[in-house]
Amino acid sequence: MQGIISDLARRSVTSGISTTGSATQEVLGSATKLASQSEVLRNEVDRFLASIRAA
């Protein structure tokens, strides 16, 4: 009985680790995409402000 419970606990922990790893990859991907979009927006704002100053 103890071995069955230990095996179930081990499988549960392994599943949790896998799920956490997947979630971590999703968060990293989203953060990377957001950083890229932020850089694009910053460049567009800088160009806009430069055109205002030049006018």
Rank of each mutant, 00 (worst) to 15 (best):
S22I: 15
A35L: 12
R10G: 02
E39H: 06
A50W: 02
S22Y: 08
K33Q: 10
T32R: 11
L8D: 04
G29I: 08
Q37P: 00
A31T: 09
T24W: 03
G21L: 14
D7F: 10
R11T: 14
G16D: 05
V27G: 01
T19Q: 12
S6H: 06
M1S: 06
Q37M: 06
S38F: 05
N43H: 08
Q25E: 10
L28M: 09
E26D: 11
R11A: 15
R11Y: 13
G3S: 13
A55Q: 15
A55C: 08
E39V: 15
S36R: 08
V27D: 00
T14Q: 15
I5L: 01
L41N: 02
L49I: 15
R10W: 03
S30N: 01
R10Y: 02
T20M: 13
L49C: 04
T32W: 03
G29E: 03
A50F: 03
F48I: 13
S51T: 10
S30L: 15
E26A: 13
A55W: 06
L8H: 06
V27R: 14
D46P: 01
T24P: 00
Q2P: 00
R42N: 03
S18Q: 12
I17V: 15
I52V: 15
S12R: 14
R42F: 12
A55T: 15
D7N: 07
V13A: 07
V27P: 00
K33E: 07
I52F: 05
L34I: 08
I52W: 11
Q2L: 06
D46S: 14
Q37C: 01
R42S: 09
L28D: 01
M1Y: 04
F48R: 12
